[in-house]
Amino acid sequence: MNIKPTLIKQLVNYGPKDYRLVSAPLPEPKANELLVKVGACGICASDFHCYHGAPMFWGNETFPPYVKTPVVSGHEFYGTVHAAGPNALEHFGVALGDRVIAEQIVPCDKCRFCRNGQYWMCEKHDIYGFQKDDADGGMTEYMLFKPTSRVHKIPQSLSLEECALIEPFSCSVHAVNRGDIQFNDVVVLAGAGTLGLGMIQAIKLKTPKKLIVIDTMPHRLALASKLGADEVMNPLEEDVIAKVKAMTDGYGCDVYIEATGNPAAVNQGLQMIRKLGRFVEFSVFSRETSVDWSIIGDRKELDIRGAHLSPGCYETVIDLFSRKLMTAENIVTHQFPLDRWEQAFATFGTAEAIKVLLVPHAQ
C-alpha cells in the first residue's frame, strides 16, 4: 500500500563508534513485507561489542567484516503491525494492529541449510541490525519485516518488558536445550546477565538435581538465587572449580553452559566439567579464546555444543511468559528514548545494568 512519506528517527551504524541518530523517510512495505511500529528494542552484548569495534563484526587479517553499513542497529525488537505490503497479512497470518515479533535472522530460504529446515544457520546469514538494505534493525520508530522473516504474534497480556525479552530468552531456551539436561544432572551456568537469567529459568523447568550459577557481580547472583539457582558462586571470592568438584564427589559438573563472553570462563568450564560431560558455548566474544584442546579430547572426551540464535523457541518463550513460568521482573533495569541512545549504550556497560531498552515511542 502507498504511505505518505513521513520522517522517522533511526539509529544508524556507520562504523565503529560512529553511530548517528538520523531522520529518514517512513519505509514503504513491498509485497510480503510488514511495516511495524517498534515498541522497544534491547541493547545486546553483540550491539555493544559492535559499537566498540570488535573484530568479529569488523574483520581482521583472517576474515572479512560481517557488518554492512550504513545499517539501522538492533535485533531485540518487537512492535505492532502498522501497515502491510501486498499479500503480507495473508503471508504472515497477521492483522493490522497485531503485536508481532520477527526472529533475529532474515534467512535466504535458498541455501542448503534453509532448504534442510536449518534456517538459523542460513549461509547468507542476514541478521537484523547488521546488514544494510536486507536487514535494517529495530533501533528506530518503524521498521520492515522482510518476506522471509519468521514472524510470531504476541498476546496482549504480555508486558512491554516481557515482549522485549522474547528474543534474548529464546536464545536462552535454545542454549539450555542444547545441554540436553537430565534429572540427575548437576548443571553449572557461567554468567548471570540477561541471557543467563533467562537460562536459569529455563534450566529450572528442566528440574536438574542442582543448578549452580557463577558470576562476578553480587547483585546478579542475588537475582539468580531469586530466580531459582540452588547455589551461587563468585570466582573473585572463592575457588569455584574446587568447590564444584567437592560438591560432586570430585567428578565435576555434568553440564556446563558458558554465557559470559569472558575467555577465563571457558577454561574454568573445561577444568570444572566431568569426563564425558556436555559443554555448551553460547557467548559472543570480543577477542579470541585459547584453550588446551587435549582436555576436550584425550583427557575428558567432552561433548562440545555451540548454541546460535533461537530456532523454534520464540513461541515457547511467548507461551512460558503467558503461563507465568518465566518472568521479566528485575531484569529490564533501564529504558531510554531514542534521543538518549548514547546514554543507553554507556549504561549498558555499567555494573548496575542488566537489560537496557530503547523505547522509541512514549508509552
Rank of each mutant, 00 (worst) to 15 (best):
C50I: 01
M247T: 01
T248I: 07
H125V: 02
S310V: 00
S225H: 11
A264L: 12
Q156M: 10
L205F: 08
Y128I: 08
D303C: 13
T260W: 02
L223A: 08
T289I: 03
T6S: 15
R340Y: 13
G74K: 06
E161W: 00
M143D: 11
V284Y: 10
A351K: 00
G250D: 07
G261Y: 01
E258V: 03
T140F: 07
V176G: 05
G252I: 00
A362N: 13
G306C: 07
V151Q: 08
G277H: 00
I257P: 05
C122L: 10
F345V: 12
F348I: 07
K300I: 02
V213E: 02
H308N: 15
P147Y: 02
A224W: 01
H334C: 11
L35D: 06
G269W: 04
S46H: 04
C50H: 05
Y314I: 01
C163K: 01
Q118T: 01
F183A: 15
V332E: 09
I354E: 12
L358Y: 10
C122I: 09
Q156F: 10
Q182H: 09
P155L: 02
A88Y: 03
E162Y: 02
W58P: 01
A222H: 05
S283Y: 04
L7P: 14
Q118M: 13
G297D: 14
A229P: 05
D249L: 13
M199Y: 06
M233S: 07
A175N: 02
G42Y: 05
P168V: 06
I154R: 01
A175S: 09
Y142E: 02
G179I: 00
A229V: 03
V106D: 11
D180N: 12
A265W: 03
I304T: 05
D339A: 15
L205N: 12
P55C: 08
S46N: 05
D180Y: 04
I257M: 13
V266C: 11
S159C: 03
P25H: 04
N267T: 09
L34E: 04
K245M: 05
G138V: 02
A224L: 02
D185F: 03
S286L: 09
H75R: 05
S46Q: 02
F169T: 07
N262C: 13
T6F: 14
Q268W: 02
D249C: 11
W293K: 03
G117P: 00
I295R: 09
